[in-house]
C-alpha cells in the first residue's frame, strides 16, 4: 500500500443537500472509496425526520490515523459538496473559512416556505456570488439537469462525486469508483453511474485546465 497522504489531516468534507437527493448514498460511496485505500473514515449523518424535505448533511472526516468525531467543528471544513445551492450557503456560514472550497449543484429545490411564498429564494447569480465570497474556490454545475439527461435526477449525487474526484483534492480515482459500483449494481446500472461520474469529473477537470 502506498503511503497515505492528505492536504489536511483530518480532511473535513461536508456533503449537503435536501432529503431525497441521495446525500447519504453519495457520502457512503466517497467514504468507501477512501476507506478501501486505507484511510480512516468517520461519517456523521443527519437523517430521520429531517429527511422529509429538510436539509441533510454528511460530515466526513478523512484521516490517516483513526476516527474523529462525527461532527466537524464550526469553521473547519476543507471542502463542501452541495447538491443544492442554498444548502451550500447554509453550510458555508457554519463550517466555512477562507480556505474552504465548494462544488455546488446550481439547481434549486425550493423549501416549503418559498413554495408558500413566505420567503423568497435568492437568484442563482446571488448564490454564486455569495458562495465565491465565502470560499477560496468554487465550482458550479447544474448536475440535476445533467442527471435528467441520463434519465433520472437522482444521478446528480454521482455527478457531484465525480466532480469531487475531478478536483484532485482527495485521492479518488475513477477505477476506485468503478470497482465499488460494479460490486453494488448490475452492469447496466453500473454503466449509467459511471457515465454520471465521468460527467462531473470532466466538468471540473476542464475548468481546472
Amino acid at each position: 500500500m502506498n503511503t497515505l497522504s492528505l492536504q489536511h489531516d483530518p480532511f473535513n468534507l461536508i456533503i449537503t443537500g435536501v432529503g431525497g437527493q441521495g446525500n447519504v448514498l453519495g457520502s457512503r460511496l466517497v467514504g468507501n472509496m477512501l476507506s478501501r485505500k486505507g484511510f480512516s473514515i468517520t461519517i456523521g449523518e443527519t437523517f430521520g425526520a429531517s429527511q422529509r424535505g429538510g436539509a441533510v448533511m454528511s460530515h466526513m472526516r478523512i484521516s490517516t490515523h483513526g476516527n474523529f468525531s462525527p461532527q466537524i467543528p464550526k469553521g473547519r471544513a476543507h471542502m463542501i459538496v452541495a447538491l443544492e445551492p442554498v444548502e451550500a450557503i447554509r453550510v458555508l456560514v457554519d463550517y466555512g473559512n477562507p480556505g474552504v472550497r465548494a462544488i455546488v449543484n446550481t439547481r434549486p429545490l425550493h423549501p416549503a416556505g418559498v413554495i408558500a411564498g413566505n420567503v423568497s429564494y435568492p437568484s442563482i447569480d446571488e448564490l454564486q456570488k455569495w458562495t465565491c465570497e465565502l470560499s477560496a474556490h468554487a465550482w458550479f454545475m447544474d448536475a440535476t439537469f445533467e442527471a435528467m439527461k441520463l434519465g433520472n435526477p437522482i444521478f446528480a449525487n454521482i455527478i457531484m462525486a465525480g466532480a469531487l474526484a475531478g478536483t484532485g483534492t482527495l485521492p479518488l480515482q475513477r477505477k476506485d469508483f468503478q470497482t465499488i459500483i460494479n460490486e453494488q449494481f448490475s452492469s447496466e446500472k453500473a454503466d449509467v453511474n459511471l457515465k454520471a461520474f465521468d460527467i462531473g469529473y470532466k466538468r471540473v477537470e476542464q475548468e481546472m485546465g
Binding site: G53, G75, R90, P98, P111, V119, P122
Partner: peptide, 28 residues
Amino acid sequence: YQGAPEDYKKKAQELSFMKTPGREPTFC
C-alpha cells in the same frame, strides 16, 4: 478559541439569516 476568523464569520452571518431561506421539514 475560534473556528473561522472573525471577519469571515461576520460576512457569513450577514448572508445567513436574512438571505438564505430556511428549510423546515414537510411531507414528501
